[in-house]
Amino acid sequence: MKTLRCVMLLLAALLLLPAAVSADEPEYTFVLTANGADSCRAAAGDIVTVTLAVRCDSGTDAVYAAQDEIVFDPAFFAFEPDSVLTRSGVKISTLHLRDGRQAVYMSFISYGSAADWAGETVLGSFRLRVLAEDGTGALCSSNYLVSSQDGMTHFPAGAEDAAVVVSELCRVTFQTNGGGDIPPRMVYRGNALTLPEMPARAGYTFAGWYSDIDLTMPWLETTPVTADMTLYAAWTGAETASAQGTWLPAAAILLLAAALAWYNRRKHE
């Protein structure tokens, strides 16, 4: 009886295992290349061909929908709109992002049977004109996914980005978000950045540097710089101070009003 119970528990545990452990669930990688490689050298005025491919790393390779935003700095590159080539069913558009960067958005959706993307399948390509006289321009995948057949979930996916090297010195710009101005710093590609002294901002406490405008990716001082980039300052204490600044006077007014009402009532008794 005890053995039967153990077998039943084992079967129940196997049935409850998440689908992610299934060998049949696909995993994908979005692969960006510049002139056919993960990095290439160029000079101001050169034209670089950017290609996006999707590689199926495991499981089935039937694709119902996929998307990617190829992000670049418009101070470094200029998009060539007449250079776009795409696979059948793939649509492309350009986006202007909140942090000042631009993106080329590629998307695919099948309303019928799935597309058979065996191995590594090229979705499309476009060209960028190099504007920068120095530095390294990053080409990064963002908001990339391959969805399930019902579109309710998406499969595990990674990304391999690319870079265009004009010079080995990368420019790091600091957005202090209300703190004092910090001039850009130059660092050799592949080296770690020596961060500046903490910026000052009255009423706030500095909470570190982040590599994205939404302050979700902390920047570690040991991280190597691989391309021109912007770091964003995070701050704490403002909301607490603001809340206390509005709540305390209001509470004091209410207490004073209650005290005056009690005093007047006692006075007339």
Rank of each mutant, 00 (worst) to 15 (best):
L9H: 08
A12C: 15
A19I: 11
V21S: 10
E27W: 02
Y28W: 09
V31H: 05
L32K: 07
L32I: 07
A34S: 11
A44D: 02
A44I: 03
D46T: 08
I47H: 13
T49D: 01
V50R: 01
V50H: 06
A53Y: 02
V54T: 14
D57V: 08
G59A: 08
T60M: 11
Y64S: 06
Y64E: 07
Q67W: 00
Q67K: 05
P74A: 10
P74E: 05
F76P: 00
E80V: 15
T86M: 04
L95Q: 09
R98K: 14
Q102K: 12
S107D: 14
A114G: 09
A114M: 02
T121G: 08
T121Q: 12
L131S: 01
L131P: 01
D134E: 14
G135C: 04
Y144N: 15
S147P: 03
Q149T: 10
Q149H: 14
M152A: 11
P156I: 01
D161E: 12
A163D: 10
C170D: 05
V172R: 02
Q175W: 02
N177S: 15
G180T: 11
P184G: 08
M186S: 15
L193T: 06
P196C: 02
E197G: 12
P199L: 01
A202H: 14
G203T: 09
W209H: 04
L220H: 01
T223L: 07
T226D: 03
T236I: 08
T246Y: 00
P249E: 01
A252M: 13
R265T: 08
R266T: 06
